[in-house]
């Protein structure tokens, strides 16, 4: 468990280093995630010590969003000025995203299912 947590931190650290060194416009942890995925593919399996902390963190992922979300309270004036724009933008774009994604996947759904059964 402890070793697994250290692995996550080290990959995050490596990600942050790469982002800084190459001045990439991407969050460090995302690069860390890609690096870890590549290493897992090379290794061919997820070590048990890594699986435990990873699944514990992802199981409580929702809780981790709360502290930053509470920061909404510092944006009341921005929200007051732009609330209609924000709400409409979120509803329209979320609806469109669902339609576009489903329309692309739906035709191949049958094929996907067949592949799943194999």
């Amino acid at each position: 468990m402890l070793v697994g947590f250290l692995i996550l931190l080290l990959f995050q650290f490596a990600g942050e280093l790469i982002v800084m060194a190459l001045a990439m416009p991407v969050p460090g942890p995302v690069v860390g995630m890609v690096l870890l995925l590549v290493c897992l593919i090379i290794k061919g399996e997820v070590p048990e010590s890594l699986r435990l902390p990873s699944e514990a963190l992802l199981k409580h992922l929702a809780l981790l969003f709360v502290p930053a979300g509470v920061g909404l309270m510092t944006h009341f004036s921005l929200l007051q000025a732009d609330w209609l724009a924000i709400l409409l933008a979120l509803i329209v774009s979320t609806g469109l995203t669902i339609i576009v994604t489903a329309l692309i996947l739906n035709p191949s759904a049958k094929k996907l299912h067949q592949l799943e059964k194999e």
């Binding site: 947590f5 996550l8 931190l9 990959f11 995050q12 990600g15 969050p27 460090g28 942890p29 995302v30 860390g32 995630m33 890609v34 870890l36 995925l37 897992l40 997820v46 890594l50 699986r51 902390p53 990873s54 699944e55 963190l57 992802l58 992922l61 981790l64 969003f65 930053a68």
Partner: peptide
């Protein structure tokens, strides 16, 4: 959140 993002690789 940082380590959790890395953990999405699993």
């Amino acid at each position: 959140l940082g380590p959790a993002t890395v953990a999405l690789a699993v």
